[in-house]
Simulated scan of single mutants.
Amino acid sequence: MHTTNYINTFIEVAEDSTAEKAEVPPMKGAEKTVAGLQFELVYDHPYQYTSDDLIFGVYARRNGLKKVDLDAEREKFFSRGQACMRASPLAKKYGWGVHSNEEGKVALYPVESEEYKRLAADEQLKHTRAMRSKKS
């Protein structure tokens, strides 16, 4: 079984991100984007979901999975590797750092905030960056 969870880790915005200030991902027509759904779940419920919960929850919602099928579908979903929060547009494009606590539960921090700066400097955490948007 694969996982996207991190423990005691801070995912900083991508090196090639132009975001100086975090922004809420825009909607695409009448539909929320993956970034918009991730933002809605995590921002409104910090440290409530693991990365696995979040990524599968967005997948399930976008694919209209039925509640009775969720356990089996989750097992099938994680039977192969999935992109983690380092690939999320929240950290790549929209200026949000992603902190995973000791339980692997995540919260978002705007790049311009004092809390982001504190987490980015915290030597007790593992640090990584969101994936670059452009290949170089």
Rank of each mutant, 00 (worst) to 15 (best):
K92H: 11
P89D: 15
T128I: 09
G95A: 04
E114K: 10
T3N: 13
E15T: 15
E20Q: 15
E103L: 12
V13A: 07
N63P: 08
K93F: 09
F78P: 10
P46H: 03
L70C: 09
P89K: 11
F77Y: 11
K93C: 06
K105E: 01
D69W: 05
R74K: 15
D122R: 09
T3D: 14
K105Y: 02
K93E: 13
T4G: 08
K76L: 12
R132G: 13
A87T: 13
G36F: 04
R61I: 12
L37G: 10
E20S: 11
N8F: 05
A107V: 03
A72K: 12
L125R: 04
R80S: 14
S51F: 08
L37C: 10
Q124G: 14
A87V: 10
K134P: 06
M131Q: 15
Y109K: 02
R61V: 12
L125Y: 03
L90R: 00
A120T: 05
A83V: 15
L90M: 04
M27H: 09
I11E: 00
R118T: 13
A14F: 07
S17M: 02
M131T: 15
L54T: 08
A107I: 01
M27V: 14
W96E: 00
T18I: 15
V98S: 00
N63M: 11
P25Q: 08
R129P: 05
N5S: 14
S17H: 02
F77T: 05
A121C: 07
A130E: 01
V111E: 01
V68W: 13
A121P: 05
V58G: 04
E15G: 13
N8W: 09
G95R: 02
E12M: 10
G36L: 02
S133L: 14
E115N: 08
R118F: 09
E115L: 09
E23K: 11
N101R: 01
Y94H: 03
H127L: 01
Y94R: 00
S100W: 05
V58W: 02
A91L: 03
F77N: 06
D71F: 11
A91N: 00
E115C: 06
R74S: 10
S113M: 01
N8A: 11
A91P: 01
S51G: 12
A83R: 15
Q82E: 14
A60L: 09
F39W: 08
S88A: 09
V42P: 02
Y109T: 00
T4L: 10
S100A: 15
H99M: 01
F77D: 04
E40I: 05
E73V: 14
S136Y: 12
Q124K: 14
L54A: 07
T50H: 07
L125D: 02
D69I: 04
R86G: 07
F39R: 03
K66T: 08
L65W: 09
N5I: 14
S133P: 07
